[in-house]
Design a protein around this nucleic acid. Sequence first.
DNA 1: AAAATGACGGTGT
DNA 2: TACACCGCCATTT
Length: 116
Amino acid sequence: MSSSEFRHLIYQLVRQIPAGQVATYGQLAVLSGHPHSARVVGYYLKTNPDIPATPCHRVVAADGSLTGYVAGGVDVKKQLLLSEGVVFQGNKVNLKISRWQTPPKSSIFNHAPEKS
DNA sequence: AAAATGACGGTGT
DNA sequence: TACACCGCCATTT
């Protein structure tokens, strides 16, 4: 897969994050098939060509903290997330509650065991 | 062509 | 919990 396709795929994934939920850079990296390229994902969002089309504000760091946001900075980013109903704990997103659960394709008939 | 950079993430203290 | 380090990899210098 070429870099340009990789980038396009990231934007495609971001556009699928529902309002009120967030994904992490690493999560997108894994979903795109590039588990070790979280930083690159961040770079792609930084150079996001079309902010309105791709809700890059719904992408946060692995610990829930907010990193950059070109159109106004993390402050604006937080406000956008709050207005969508994302749950915060202080300065960080409560991933436990607001993390985007990607639909597991093959586990529809699967009892996802919590723990054992 | 080689080195530096960054909207990351995991580990160690 | 917070901060410092180090590995990662497409892009830029």
